[in-house]
Design a protein around this nucleic acid. Structure first.
Length: 882
RNA sequence: GCCCAAGUGGCGGAAUGGUAGACGCAGGGGAUUCAAAAUCCCCCGCCUUAACGGGUGUGCCGGUUCGAGUCCGGCCUUGGGUACCA
């Protein structure tokens, strides 16, 4: 049975020789699972048959599966293996269910690490990046992924970023891009802009200087114009995780509130009003102070003749730009001495404070503080001795004197002791609406809808990114480059020996002629945020060689991405920006309307973690040791060199800087790709983190070896062998088909693998006939094929399967074989399990109850007590209540 | 600070509101072997019991329910994001 029938029609003539090699094992039977030769052989077979080349074919349903493309750090890690294996399982499964599958791969290749490497170790970011890509591609290929490598590209390819520049010009044309001032982290020593991650505890990572917030003119995408659309369209993303949609919803942050003004008393000219936006106008009677941002125009005006105040503002502007840094800083205020009148009562005056926690970016940069119903305001009021006046209470009897801010849910009914609109007892939401209506009627303010989402600043003062294709002309101003002049290519001759953007100091690159008037002009030296690169790569994969950003016919066929897979860390920015880009590309005629939501289904997978081994170096700095440098004893770790004990930090995200990275290549060379793939799928649910353990990988290898020898044994059987238990084996086989199919379709890979273990155990013990066992083995191979494709192909060939297993149709379970006639019901007494009975599946409740109550263990436990109630859940459980 | 998750044996984890711990690892015992490796079989939450059994148990506190790992409220811890890491 080992040999292929020479008459077997094989569709792929080019792989005949490879298949023949596989059958040659009849003459020289391999006694052991030999992963390296199996894997090389089948990768060659797939490559020869061009199995994974995606070609438009309107006669087949298409399926586009995409994993978030990697940053080319130079080494693949287990996180990549996990990510791409999951996508591969889906891709291969879909191929065997008759789909025309697109499964591409590329590189998110611009970004800071390349420049950091150039600064740290010399060399050029371009060389570093392309070398890394070549290395990583070579590391990825042995995994046997079903990728169409002919579509590969890197975002730093000039063919890609040139098209991105064309997109930018289209967006600019359509009014989707504009310039405005925004704050950046400024390192006053290195005289350069820092990324947030380059600011450590308020200081520049290289210079150690205190970082300042400084304003620069920057390019922005008008994503905020699409806030409401991006929000409401979330409702239709049925196959996205609810948590991601919720995070995006909160990020967009739609709110209904009141915009109104406090009139000032004796304020500088032009500042007779302070505009305020509040989502809690119902608490206006609890107002205690007005707070403005240190960057508010009034604050800046006051700076001019108040050195003390100017120093306070200066102090507030120190530190990084992140919301986290600003909001976790100690709350500080400065009493400007100015006062404003309360809109309800002109005799009621409130002080105006500058406060460091108020962001100029959100709302109007000014708030009114209501300490009774806001924890931050409460803290502030307590610190500066400001009044705390409640406007609502939990009950009429509650004391209006508060020990802490009272902040109930807006859906909760509360008693308004300081209300001015609506009922005395009402929910926060009711009160807010009533307050807005009241203020509108009385000409105090206006109900407005605001969004937290800010426009997307895309300017980066860095070299290794896509140049922004505009020109600065002394007569024409900011002028878009002409499309025929694209691509604006990055110059290669740059150095990284001094901080700052090399494009700024390049002797000639900046010089150009104004596309408008032709006079000498200068290029923009800002490059684009790398999120721009990753916001449309999925569309480019449908036509990677097109001389426009996207070929519409290809996009029309392949879009949308049917299954997108990536890390939860991209839940907000990358995915929101991509959703915006799909809209902007549609507006500018670069994507068909059907692709407005580019990702039909999203799956967010967890990280691969590994213990960190840490000790302290001579200079007090932490030293991280590689796993292969330590010995483990009783949960403790000791250095192989010297035996000193090191600290073990369990389950940490694998990170190059922490040296806790397990190199997939070592695993593949020791056990094979199928083992690595099997392990990353088997041990944890895919949305959760998985801890890499050496013993787990070994166990996977042993299991695959066991599967191989079972199949080998079956292939050695006499085809006429009769046996017992055929029906039982085939029943288990059909159950396995059902469960594994469900597992693969629902991303329950670990559960699917548990079923495969179970089915393998059944098969191993089976004494069934050869024909039944062969059927079971071939089905097992098919069910394993998406996960361990090489082993599956090998088994298939050994059993005389037709062609490649990847081309064989996915098995379907026989419903008749899945029906069980009896069920075992546990019997509970007062919710505790006391016994069990086995009854026919469709026995009426009354009879089940009778049998349950006559069960020996039940009678013993009841001990004469009369049941008050018996609950029979058919097919599930019986609960006797006494 | 704010937003979103997660927390179950020694470990990874399983469980449409219905027998908590499937499956795997580690561990223990046994078979095979001159011996080992490999393989195969059995046991394996904790406490208690000679045993049958009983008690207890899903981060903590409380609630809903005949019944809660699962639903609700409040915490704790860990992780992700927080707009220039990708």
């Amino acid at each position: 049975m080992l040999a292929l029938d020479p008459e077997t029609p094989i569709a792929y003539h080019r792989i005949n020789s490879i298949l023949r090699r596989a059958t040659r094992t009849k003459d020289m039977p391999m006694q052991r699972y030999d992963a390296p030769s199996i894997e090389a052989k089948w990768q060659e077979a797939w490559s020869a048959a061009e199995t994974f080349k995606a070609v438009r074919d309107p006669s087949k349903p298409k399926y586009y599966v995409l994993e978030m493309f990697p940053y080319p750090s130079g080494r693949i890690h287990m996180g990549h293996v996990r990510n791409y294996t999951m996508g591969d399982v889906i891709a291969r499964y879909k191929m065997s269910t008759g789909h025309n599958v697109l499964h591409p791969m590329g590189w998110d290749a611009f970004g800071m690490p390349a420049e950091n490497a150039a600064m740290a170790i010399g060399g050029h970011p371009k060389d570093w990046t392309y070398n890394n890509i070549a290395d990583m591609r070579e590391q990825m290929k042995p995994l046997g992924l079903s990728i169409d490598w002919s579509r590969e590209f890197a975002t730093c390819d000039v063919e890609y970023y040139g098209q991105q520049q064309a997109l930018f010009l289209d967006f600019l044309d359509e009014g989707l891009v504009y310039r405005k001032n925004a704050v950046v982290n400024w390192d006053p020593v290195d005289m350069t802009v820092l990324a947030n991650e380059q600011v450590e505890a308020g200081r520049g990572w290289r210079s150690g200087a205190l970082v300042e917030r400084r304003e620069l003119t920057q390019w922005f995408f008008k994503i905020s114009d699409h806030s409401d659309e991006l929000l409401s369209a979330l409702d239709d993303l049925d196959n996205w995780p609810a948590k991601v949609k919720l995070m995006q919803e909160n990020w967009i942050g739609k709110s209904r509130g009141l915009q109104f003004a406090f009139s000032t008393i004796d304020a500088p000219d032009g500042h007779d009003r302070i505009e305020v936006y509040t989502t809690r106008p119902d608490t206006l009677n609890g107002a205690s102070f007005v707070g403005i941002s240190p960057d508010h125009p009034l604050a800046k005006q006051l700076e001019k003749d108040n050195a003390d105040l100017a120093a306070f503002n200066e102090d507030c502007r120190q530190g990084g730009t992140t919301a986290e840094a600003i909001e976790t800083a100690e709350k500080k205020g400065y009493d400007t001495g100015l006062r404003v009148r309360h809109p309800f009562d002109t005799a009621w005056e409130l002080p105006v404070y500058i406060a460091n926690f108020i962001l100029m970016d959100y709302g109007t940069g000014a708030i009114f503080g209501c300490p009774a119903h806001d924890e931050r305001d409460f803290e502030f009021a307590t610190k500066y001795g400001l009044p705390i006046t409640s406007t609502y209470l939990p009950s009429e009897e509650s004391s209006p004197k508060l020990e802490e801010a009272y902040v109930p849910a807006k859906t909760e009914k509360v008693f308004y002791n300081g209300g001015f609109a609506g009922a005395q007892w009402q929910t926060g939401n009711e009160a807010i609406n009533a307050a807005i209506a009241f203020c509108e009627e009385n000409g105090i303010g206006q109900g407005v809808t605001k969004y937290r989402l800010r426009d997307w600043g895309l300017s980066r003062q860095r070299y290794w990114g896509c140049p922004i294709p505009v020109v600065h002309c002394s007569t024409c101003g900011v002028v878009p480059e002409k499309k025929e002049n694209l691509p604006i290519e990055l110059p290669y001759d740059v150095t990284f020996d001094t901080p700052g953007n090399p494009l700024d100091r390049h002797p000639t690159w900046r010089n150009c002629n104004c596309p408008n008037c032709g006079s000498p002009a200068q290029r923009e030296t800002d490059t684009m945020d790398t999120f721009v690169d990753s916001s449309w790569y999925f569309a480019r994969f449908t036509s990677p060689d097109a001389d426009t950003p996207v070929n519409m016919a290809d996009a029309e066929y392949w879009m949308n991405v049917d299954q997108y897979i990536g890390g939860i860390e991209h839940a907000i920015l990358h995915l929101l920006y991509s959703r915006f880009f799909a809209r902007a590309m549609q507006i500018t005629g670069n994507l068909p309307a059907k692709a407005i939501e580019p990702f039909d289904a999203l799956f967010t997978q967890g990280m691969v973690t590994h213990a960190i081994y840490k000790s302290e170096g001579d200079n007090g700095r932490p030293v991280y040791h590689y796993p292969e440098q330590v010995d483990l004893k009783d949960g403790k770790a000791f250095l192989k060199d010297g035996g000193a004990e090191v600290e073990v930090i369990p389950s940490a995200k694998m990170s190059k800087s922490k040296n806790n990275v397990v190199d997939p290549l070592n695993i593949i060379s020791a056990f094979g790709a199928d083992t690595a793939r099997w392990f990353v799928l088997s041990d944890s649910p895919p949305e959760r983190d998985v801890e890499w353990t050496a013993s787990g990988a070994e166990a996977s290898f042993k299991h695959l070896g066991r599967v191989w020898s079972i199949c080998h044994r079956v292939s050695q059987m006499d085809p006429n062998t009769k046996g017992d238990g055929d029906e039982n084996l085939l029943r288990e086989m059909h159950k396995a088909i059902r469960d594994v199919t469900l597992g693969v379709e629902s991303f329950g890979f670990n559960a699917a693998i548990a079923k495969l273990y179970g089915f393998t155990n059944t098969l191993a013990k089976s004494k069934a006939s050869h024909s039944a066992q062969r059927q079971a083995v071939m089905t097992l191979a098919q069910l394993m094929a998406p996960m361990t494709p090489h082993l599956a192909e090998d088994i298939w060939a050994h059993q005389g399967g037709e062609g490649l297993i990847i081309d064989a149709p996915w098995p379907t379970p026989d419903e008749a074989m899945l029906v069980e006639s009896n069920v075992t019901l546990p019997i509970q007494i007062n919710g505790k399990r006391r016994g069990e009975i086995t009854v026919p599946k469709d026995m009426p409740k009354e009879e089940v109850e009778k049998i349950a109550l006559s069960d020996e263990a039940v009678i013993r436990t009841l001990d004469g007590a009369t049941p008050k109630k018996v609950i029979v859940v058919p097919g599930r459980i019986v609960n006797v209540v006494v």
